[in-house]
Simulated assay, not measured.
Amino acid sequence: MQKIVTNIWSNRNAEEAGAFYAGVFPNARSWVESRYPFEGLLEFQQGLAGEPLTVGVDIDGERITLINAGDEFAPNPSVSLMLNFDPLDFDGDAVAARAQLDTIWEAFADGGSVLMPLQEYPFSARYGWVQDRYGVSWQLMLTDPEGDPRPFLIPALMFGGPVQNRAAAAVDRYLEVFEDTELGQRVPYGQPTGPANEDAVMFSDFRIGEQWFMAMDSGVEQDFSFTCGMSLEARCEDQAEIDRLWEALSAVPAAEQCGWLVDAFGMNWQIVPKNMGELMERPNAFQHLMPMKKIIISDI
């Protein structure tokens, strides 16, 4: 089971976006996972009755979820999705790896916006950062095959604005809270760079279970930070694990709703049972869930 799933808030177009991503990546697929009920909706949800609620997307074995809602939130580059194009995954053919990188880049750039141009950088022979037509940010990198192996898709957290220079503290906390964790690389800036101080994190990665994540402090001033537009969904084995993670992570009581919380570093989490889809098939499950803060499985 994938322990943590990246969730993306979509403005009434989750099914369309899922189909787009499934068409961009080889061996990817999307599907409607759940739908809004016809009864028990809040006033702002009335127009979504019967429409998709969550759309699942599988990209090279990594699951992401699109939340079909309104325009209350939107993704921003504080959370992006890193794509590693490793020549070893193409039988050592760097030309083929680069060609697939360029093809996917073109699909994302069409109707999107370029945040860092696709070109050679000191850390990669080919890298670019792009925000696609749905507002989701992607980093595409041709990977050095001699480096430590990493998955194709890695969620990346950028700490800026009110959480500037807190990447190391956040990662240390996540390594402490979750089970079976590992710190990979951690590279400091070494000198003040924009709002980043010399001890701030220029690059780091860490593992939770079988999944890898990236974290860094922004080296330029940012007018955005983490929101519900991109959240991390932690799938729990039972109520005891829900209780433990909720107690360890929740730091903003006013943000607690329907299993959502905000941690001390501004990151938005959903702490849910691993069989949430099955539970939501119970009679009146949606109505039972909506008033909850922390999810109580027995009350759904």
Rank of each mutant, 00 (worst) to 15 (best):
F178P: 15
M158D: 13
V163S: 12
A167D: 01
D148Q: 12
P151K: 14
A170W: 14
F159R: 05
T143H: 05
P162R: 04
M158N: 13
P155G: 11
E176L: 05
G161P: 00
E146V: 05
V171G: 00
G161C: 06
P145I: 06
F152I: 08
A156L: 05
F159C: 09
P149A: 01
F159D: 10
Q164W: 02
A170G: 13
A156D: 06
V171D: 00
E146L: 09
P145M: 02
V163L: 06
P155D: 05
M158L: 12
A168Q: 14
D172M: 13
I154V: 13
A170V: 09
N165P: 12
I154Y: 10
G161S: 08
G160N: 11
A156E: 02
A156W: 03
P155N: 11
D144E: 07
Q164D: 02
A167E: 03
A169E: 11
G160Q: 11
F159I: 04
D172V: 04
A168D: 12
L142K: 08
P155T: 12
A170Y: 13
A169G: 06
D144W: 04
V163I: 12
L175S: 07
V163N: 13
T143M: 11
D144G: 13
G147H: 00
V171E: 00
L153V: 14
L157P: 09
T143P: 01
P149R: 08
M158G: 11
A169Y: 02
P151I: 14
L142S: 03
P151Y: 14
P149K: 08
F152Q: 13
A168S: 14
T143Y: 06
T143Q: 10
R166H: 05
V163G: 01
A156H: 07
M158F: 04
I154W: 05
P151H: 15
F159W: 04
R150L: 15
P162I: 05
R173K: 15
A170N: 10
P155E: 06
P149E: 04
V163C: 07
A167M: 01
P151W: 14
Y174I: 03
F159V: 02
F152Y: 10
G147C: 00
E146K: 14
F152P: 00
I154K: 01
A168N: 07
R173I: 03
V171Q: 00
